[in-house]
């Protein structure tokens, strides 16, 4: 039991307790009086909150969609290319592709802020003359692409890990059976990495609600212009601490966190029962 104590205690005190306590707080007001569902009513009923909330949630799902459509397929493509046999120098590519992932969000945010800044004019030479981060139409897609650029290394390395674990025999057997490269991928490789696809999707989904840093770094907590880049993370922060004139409310912050918790839980349950049950992981 001595072995279990430190991990269990730290985890319980600094993670489980705060999460549960946050849930509890969402039913109390800022002075600690029981408030029932008042906070939730405010969040969903009061337009100053509700509009921002639905906007942010919508943006979050757009952000998520970008990662699912771009980051994960690109990561898979790169991983497949990195496991092609008999091509030299693959390790160098692997190192380079993963490099942005090791940079901190602050640095990544700033790099792209500078590069996309109309003041510098780098984008103009490439033929883009809109301030991509300045217009509400383009700001969210641009931020999504920056995030994809930074994090593509994660799905890449995860797919890479399962791909190299597939025995060479299997691939060769299918080639002898008459499969071409595409058929090998469709019939053998892809079904075997399907479980990983699920894991990566759910990690992307969860990570999405953590995507505060980049937006904070590039656009600040108000997530401009005109809240066009506001996502749940920044909305949570503003609700809790307040920003530009408004005062924050811990109780409302806890409420937002609780709602996020439910949204994440819904996703996780969907994954566990809708996906994981149907997709078997095979011993290789």
């Amino acid at each position: 039991m001595v072995f279990l104590a430190p991990a269990t205690v730290i985890y319980s005190v600094f993670m489980v307790y705060p999460l549960l306590d946050s849930l509890r707080r969402s039913f109390f007001d800022d002075d600690g009086n029981f408030a029932g569902l008042d906070n939730y009513n405010t969040l969903f009923g009061n337009p100053t909150f509700a509009d921002r909330f639905w906007d942010a949630l919508g943006h979050n799902f757009q952000f998520f969609a970008f990662h699912m459509v771009l980051q994960n397929p690109i990561g898979l493509l790169l991983a497949v290319l990195l496991t092609v046999q008999s091509v030299r120098g693959l390790n160098i590519y692997r190192t380079i592709v993963f490099l942005p992932t090791t940079l901190s969000v602050v640095i990544v945010g700033f790099i792209w802020r500078l590069i996309l800044s109309p003041i510098w004019g780098v984008t103009e030479t490439v033929g883009i003359d809109t301030p991509l981060l300045g217009e509400s139409r383009t700001v969210l897609p641009t931020l999504s692409l920056i995030s994809v650029w930074q994090w593509v290394g994660i799905p890449m390395i995860f797919f890479y890990a399962v791909l190299i674990a597939i025995p060479k025999d299997l691939i060769e057997a299918s080639r002898v059976d008459g499969a071409g490269s595409w058929q090998v991928f469709r019939d053998i490789t892809f079904p075997l990495i399907l479980p990983m696809l699920g894991i990566i999707s759910i990690l992307t989904y969860i990570g999405n609600f953590n995507a505060f840093d980049l937006i904070y770094q590039v656009k600040g907590v108000v997530a401009g212009p005109d809240f066009a880049s506001d996502i749940m993370g920044t909305f949570f922060y503003r609700t809790f601490f307040g920003a530009s004139g408004t005062t924050g409310s811990p109780a409302m912050g806890a409420t937002v966190a609780s709602v996020m918790f439910l949204i994440i839980l819904a996703g996780v349950l969907l994954y566990m029962f809708g996906w994981q049950r149907r997709v078997t992981t095979y011993e290789l």
């Binding site: 005190v13 600094f14 705060p18 918790f261």
Partner: peptide
């Protein structure tokens, strides 16, 4: 299982209470 739940839940959601703590 108890210890594994934390993989799925971002700790940031408990920020309000962590700060108080």
């Amino acid at each position: 299982l108890y210890l594994a739940i934390g993989i799925m839940i971002p700790i940031r959601l408990g920020t309000v209470s962590i700060l108080k703590l």
